[in-house]
C-alpha cells in the first residue's frame, strides 16, 4: 500500500488532425501505485499547467470502465498491458519503478487523430446507424414475457452486448478491421428472437458500411479478442459470417 514510483512518459503530441505529430518525453516522480493511469495523466497535466504549458488532450469520462470513452495505446497495447480492463481501470501498480511508458493514440485509418491522444471514432456510430438496431418504434410492443428466451441464449446475447464501442479491436488489428465490433452487435441481435427477423439484412448493411468507412478485412488473427477490455469472443465473428452468408444467398 501507498508505494510510489518514478516513471518516464513518452507521449504522442499532435496539435490537430492535419499537423505532424511527435513524441515528447516527460518525467513524473512519486506516482502513487494506487492511482489509476488516468489519475497519473491528471497529475502530469497539472504539472504541465503549472509550468504554463498546454496539457495533453485525451478522451475519458466515466472512469469506471463502461462508457468506452478512454482510449490510449500504452506500451504497444490498447488500454495497456493489463488484461480485461479499460485504460481508466489500469492502475500504476502494474508498472515498475523507473519504467519508460509509451503512450500513443489509437492508430487506425478509420479513427483520425483529433488532438494528441484523442481520436474520432464517429465511424462506429455510423456503422450502428446503418443497421445496429431492431426496427421498432416506441409503444405498441408485446409484453416483455410474451416471448420466452432460454437463459443460455440470453446470457450469450448479453456477453456480445457488453461491447463498449471503445475501438480497441480495430486499433489492435493489423488490418484495422472492425469485425469484432460489428459482430458483437449482429450476434447479440441475431441470437434474440426480437432481432432474428432482420438478422441477415442487418449483417449485410453493417458490413457494407464498415467497408465503406475504410476499415480493413478480417484475417482471423485474434488480436481483437485478446485486447478487448470486455472479453468479447471472436466466436461472434463466426455468427456474423453465417448471417452475412445467409444475406448473400438471399440476394
Amino acid at each position: 500500500m501507498d508505494k510510489s514510483i518514478n516513471v518516464t512518459l513518452k507521449v504522442w503530441r499532435q496539435a490537430g488532425p492535419k499537423v505532424k505529430g511527435k513524441f515528447e518525453t516527460y518525467k513524473l516522480d512519486n506516482v502513487s501505485t494506487d492511482s489509476s493511469f488516468l489519475e497519473m495523466m491528471d497529475v502530469l497535466n497539472e504539472q504541465l499547467i503549472n509550468e504554463r504549458k498546454e496539457p495533453i488532450a485525451f478522451d475519458h469520462d466515466c472512469r469506471e470502465g463502461i462508457c468506452g470513452m478512454c482510449s490510449m495505446y500504452i506500451n504497444g497495447h490498447p488500454h495497456g498491458p493489463d488484461g480485461e480492463i479499460t485504460t481508466c481501470q489500469l492502475h500504476m501498480r502494474v508498472f515498475k519503478n523507473n519504467e519508460t511508458i509509451t503512450i500513443e493514440p489509437w492508430r487506425s485509418a478509420a479513427f483520425p487523430v483529433i488532438k494528441d491522444l484523442m481520436v474520432n471514432r464517429g465511424a462506429y456510430d455510423k456503422i450502428i446507424q446503418a443497421g445496429g438496431f431492431v426496427n421498432v418504434n416506441t409503444g405498441g410492443v408485446p409484453d416483455g414475457n410474451a416471448i420466452a428466451i432460454g437463459k443460455d441464449i440470453a446470457d450469450e446475447a448479453m456477453d456480445a452486448a457488453s461491447c463498449i464501442g471503445c475501438g480497441a479491436c480495430a486499433a489492435a488489428c493489423k488490418n484495422g478491421s472492425a469485425m469484432l465490433f460489428v459482430a458483437a452487435k449482429v450476434s447479440q441481435l441475431a441470437l434474440l428472437p426480437q432481432g432474428k427477423v432482420e438478422g441477415a439484412a442487418r449483417a449485410k448493411a453493417m458490413v457494407a458500411k464498415m467497408d465503406e468507412l475504410g476499415f480493413g478485412n478480417c484475417t482471423n488473427t485474434g488480436a481483437c479478442e485478446a485486447e478487448c477490455p470486455k472479453n468479447v469472443s471472436i466466436s461472434h465473428i463466426a455468427r456474423l459470417n453465417r448471417e452475412f452468408l445467409c444475406a448473400k444467398f438471399q440476394d
Partner: peptide, 22 residues
C-alpha cells in the same frame, strides 16, 4: 411496465430464468 416491454422489443438482453422468462 411499458418501459420493460419496450426495452425487450429493442433487444435488451435482460437476465432470464431457466424457463425463459424475465
Amino acid at each position: 411496465n411499458g418501459i420493460i416491454d419496450q426495452c425487450v422489443a429493442q433487444g435488451v438482453p435482460f437476465a432470464r430464468e431457466y424457463g425463459g422468462l424475465l
